[in-house]
Structure formats: C-alpha cells, structure tokens
Design a protein around this nucleic acid. Structure first.
Lengths: 337, 337
DNA sequence: GCGCTCTACTAGCGCGCTCTAGTTCGAGTA
DNA sequence: TACTCGAACTAGAGCGCGCTAGTAGAGCGC
C-alpha cells in the first residue's frame, strides 16, 4: 500500500480511500492510484483491513458434505449475501470432521454470523453459539436457543404427501423416519396424525432410519426380508428425505419389486436428486432458494440491529408428483370415499 | 488478550506463547492462563494473528456446487490438510457466481494456496493465478501454466470401459463427451483410439455434451428421436461422467428402453451417485481420497519450498462393473475372438 | 483585504496479535 | 565465590490497513 502511495505520489490514506470507494479523492487521482496498484499487483490485505475496521462482513456457512439439499441452499445463499454486501465462507462437516470443528473454523476466520444448514448438535451448544455470534439454523428447530430459524412447515408437506397416497388407494403406508435429522420429529408426528385422520391408525408403522441412502437401502432390505418370511410389503413408503427414498428405491428394485407398480415411494426435499431418477421421484418440495434468502436476511438484519430478537420463518412446502407414486397393486384398489 | 494477561498476572507475550502452544511457559502458568481465558471467553483473533505472523496456513478450495465428485474430493482434502497443519476454506462456483469470483474470495481471505477442483477457466488465467499463489488444478490439465496437476489416467479408464463393452459383444458404442469439462478431451481421444483398436472405426460416434444430468437427458432424447426415425439405437453409451450417465439412463428408461437389456450405459468418476442407482452404475472409478491427498500435499510442499517446480500426479482409475452394463440385445451376440 | 466553505489530501494512532531481543532468577559448575 | 546456563518471562516493534482530526488551497461573497 505504501508502495502504491509512493508511486502515485499520494499518501497511504488516499490509497485507502480509493480502494474503499469513498468520497475524498479526485477522479484523476483515483484512476492513477488504481493504475499503479494494478501495475505492481497490489491487492488489499483483508486480514489487515478486517483488523483495522473491526468488522469482517462475512457470513459463515456450515453444511454437510454429500447432503444434496445443502448444496441447493448454498446456491441461494451466495447471491443474497452479495446483494447485502456480505462475504460468504463455507465450512463442511464430513466424516472425521465434526460440526463443531467446522463451526470453530468459521469463527476462527472471523465470521460475524453463522448459518448452520441442518445442524445436528445439542441445543445447548447451539444456544451457546447463538450467544457468541448471530446464528441461524436452517431446517433444524432449536427450542429456546438464541438462534434464528428457517424451515418448512413439515406437517403441511407430510399431509399433502399422505393425502396423495391415500387418494391413490394406499392403506399400508410406512414411514422411514430421519432419526435425529432436521425436521424428522415433526415429519414423524405428522405422519402419525395423517394416518389417524384417514382412519388408518392400525396401519401406522414408523421404521427408524436417517437421512442417507444407506438408511434407505437397509430399510428396503428389511422389507424384502419380511416378505421372505411371508409378511406383506407395505404398498407405499414415505421416506425421511430424498436420499433415503433413493436408497429404498434401489433396494426394492434390486429385489425385484417394481416402483410404483408394487410399491409407491415418496421423498422429501426435492433436492436436485429427485429429477434424476429414471422415473422422477415424487417428493415434497422445499424452496431452497427462498429458505436461503431468509437465512441470509435474518443473519444480516440481526448483525445490523443487534437488539433484534431471533425470528422464525416457516415456508410452505409443496408436493411434487412424479413417477414413483401410483395406485397400489390390484386387490388394494382405490378407497371408495 | 491484555485482559487475560492482566488477570493471570503475566505479560501479553506469555499469553501468546501459551495459545500458540510454544515452549517458554511453565505448566502452572499455562493452566492459569487457559483457565482465565476460558473464564472471560477469550479466543485469539485470527485476523490479527494472521496479520502478525504474515502467514495464514490456509488452503483455499474452489469447487462447483452440485458437482458430486467435488464433494467426494472435499471429504478427502480436510483430513490431509489438518494432518499437515493447514486450514481449509471453501468457495463455491455456482450459477451466478463465476469461478473467478469464487477464487477472488479465497485470495481475499488470504489463502496461501489454491486448490481448484475441475476448473473451467482459461489457461492464461490459471497461469496468472499460478504466479500469484501456489495453485493446484485437480482433474483439469493446464498446459504450460505454473500449476500443479492431479488427475486420473483417463485413457486407461476409458480403455478398460471400452474393453469391457467390446468383450460383452458391443459394437455400436457411442460416446457423449464432456465438452470443455475436465478430462473430456483425453476421454474423447481414448474412446476413438479404443474403437479403432477394436476395428470399430466405422462405428465411431461422439455426441457433444457436458458433465451434467441435463446433457445426458438431452442425449437420451436425441437417441430416442433417432429411433423414431428408424435409425438403430446404439447398444452402448460411454458417458462423459456419472452425472451425464444418470441423465441418459433416466431419459432412456422413460422412453421405454431398458438398461442394460437394450442399451448398456457406462459412467466415469464413481462419485457416490453411482451406488444409488437402483441397479448400480457401471463406471470408471477415480480415487477421490487419493487425489485429494495429492492435491493438498503438492500445495503444502510448494508453500514450504517455494523453489519447487509444479508437479503432476497421474492416478490409475479402475473400471467398476455394476448393473448398467450387459451383453447387447440378441442379434448383436458376443464377438468371436 | 477578510473570513468562510468546500474539496482534496495527509499525519499518525490503533486494531490484536507474533516475534525478536532482551531480562531475571535459580541451579549447576569450576 | 564467581561464573555460566537454561527456563521462564517481558518490552516493544511491527504486520497492513481504517479512521479521526487535521491542513492546504481554491473559490466566493462582502
């Protein structure tokens, strides 16, 4: 910076003004400074800048690698952050790299706010984070913690999916839940409520699972094994999310079960995975872009008005009917309603 | 920091020593300092630290959101970087966020080295980057640019895939290429060479495409449309990568073509997508973990010995036969060899 | 001529840390 | 006793910026 100032024949302060695009420099000086800077390859050092001004204007985003819905969210976070003049730093949780580690990395790099995509940490830890920095949790509700919250009205999504299946004539609808996964508890509750509402209380069955393909595969195998032992297959499966639905599909198809002829499968998320299935996955669509925008806005607004209380945004999901749902096999014909 | 020093009854320098875990402080002082720091919630400011020591020990990773193979790579980058004592910052290219922007963000955050996953930028730009910071390109060869390079021996992978198909009896094998995508040029060349080697020169057909599901879907539709017009379907498709293969699969299956009975499909990457297909995708496996390790090591070694010349690592890929490849339909029986 | 304002610019402190070149002190050594 | 030495600790410069409080000088009205 001093070099630039010398060569341009001005003071360092002036160079600073030019680079911050602030008033106080004439047009020609501005141009001269920029030209000189370009010549000697000067770029402002963000560490020093950050140190000097005390603010980083950086949002830290924690996500889980391989969680496809997260990449959909990330794609929405960037433009909104840029619009509001904030930088984005990404940190992934992965195998061998815990969420805490990922978050510490963000904090260490001076992120002013944290946007956590489907965090799986203890509420106590999240609350602590929320007190240390502005924190937004996406998809995972954190009761009584000082964090903003953006999620879908899971119950509405599940209800739509269940109504769709019941209308097609399904009765034996099982739910693979997402364990501790974000939104799982509510989805599970809503599944039970829907079954009761449709008079299918006796058919309720929740199979423990998680939000991974592997979990779907295991459940698929479990169902096939049950069939071996003479038990009937369910006619429809409501999976915890799209990844799990994909796993079920794979396992069932490999086992000679045809979807949707023999079994219907419905996912949740409408991550871009859903389009890829040869027959298209019927799923509950969450609007990733909108969720991302809310998350960024919540974070930024609370950064700029610290007295603001954390808020909650609940977005309406929408069932998207594609190829994996259809009427149940003959003998389980449509309900007469 | 001064607060901690005061309360612990030592100098700031001592606090610094303790936090850097350096010799020069007694056991009890160390404990006392850490305890006090914990009490008042002190955490070292990385911006200042960075500024003071002049080095960030941070690797910047640019990847493309939705490129599933990249997330496989990222998962491998973290542990290796941690092992070598480096931090990792992620920056995604996405729709509306160019690679250049993603890279500038990393540079702005003082990354010492760049690891670019399948960059799509001009060689001239990459060379410029290579001169500005230690740069490693993964998957994309950049001739004559000052960057390290980690990739697979594409030709070996393609050759294995082609041998496999030919042995099954296929003759009408088309290749959907990856356009400007990483590795595409070499895969295309190798496809042509393999066809010639097997005496199938007359059957050579390269369909332009890219490394996305959409491209696969379009190609699948194109093939179906040709069949409508009375042209024969190819008996096998070698896709540019797994995503493209998924797209082809989807389009063909929707069009009533059964895989692998009517057409065999082979992908490239073995990203975790490949396992998800109901019947498992036959594909050429690239070892993401190993590639990630090489990339990190190249970067770190050149940071620590700047006189080192950029290097190249070529890893052997391996065909993984799963469910999407099989003998061609009757009439195209196995070759007598 | 004077004071006033406005634009263009500058001096220099401080952000929170690291690091070099010390000092202090007690134990070991000749 | 006088010294050396190492462990434990400290003073203070400096990293590259932003920012506040200022100055210089041009233009203007009276």
């Amino acid at each position: 910076m001093a070099d630039v100032a010398d060569r341009a024949g001005v003071s360092r302060a002036l160079v600073s003004i030019v680079f911050r695009n602030q008033p106080g420099a004439s047009r020609e000086t501005r141009e001269r400074v920029l030209r000189v800077a370009d010549e000697i390859g000067y770029r402002p050092d963000s560490a020093a800048r950050l140190l000097a001004r005390g603010r980083s204007r950086t949002l830290g985003v924690m996500f889980t690698v391989h969680q496809t819905f997260h990449t959909d969210l990330i794609e929405g976070i960037y433009p909104e952050a840029e619009r509001l003049g904030y930088d984005v730093l990404l940190s992934a949780a992965a195998q061998g790299r815990s969420e805490e580690k990922a978050v510490e990395a963000l904090l260490g790099h001076r992120c002013e706010a944290l946007i956590l995509l489907g965090p799986d940490a203890e509420p106590a830890y999240l609350d602590e984070l929320g007190r240390r920095a502005v924190t937004v949790s996406v998809s995972r509700r954190v009761p009584r913690a000082r964090v903003d919250f953006v999620h879908s009205a899971e119950s509405k999504g599940v209800r739509q999916a269940m109504d769709h299946l019941v209308e097609l004539g399904h009765r034996g609808i099982v739910h693979i839940d997402g364990g501790r996964g974000p939104g799982s508890a509510e989805r599970r509750r809503s599944y039970r409520a829907a079954m009761r509402r449709h008079g299918l209380e006796a058919e309720i069955r929740v199979i423990p699972g998680e939000h991974t393909e592997q979990s779907g595969i295991e459940t698929g195998r479990l169902l096939l094994a049950e069939r071996e032992r003479g038990l009937p297959l369910p006619t429809a499966v409501l999976a915890g999310n799209d990844r799990c639905a994909m796993g079920v599909l794979m396992a069932l198809t490999r086992g000679g079960v045809e979807v949707p002829r023999d079994v219907s499968v419905v996912g949740f998320d409408d991550s871009h995975l859903s389009h890829l299935m040869p027959i298209g996955l019927t799923t509950v669509r969450q609007d990733a872009r909108l969720m991302a925008e809310y998350a960024v806005r919540f974070a930024v607004e609370r950064l700029e008005e610290p007295q603001l209380e954390p808020r909650e945004a609940v977005l309406d999901p929408k069932l998207v009917v594609r190829g994996t749902s259809g009427p149940p096999p003959a003998g389980d014909g449509p309900l007469v309603r």
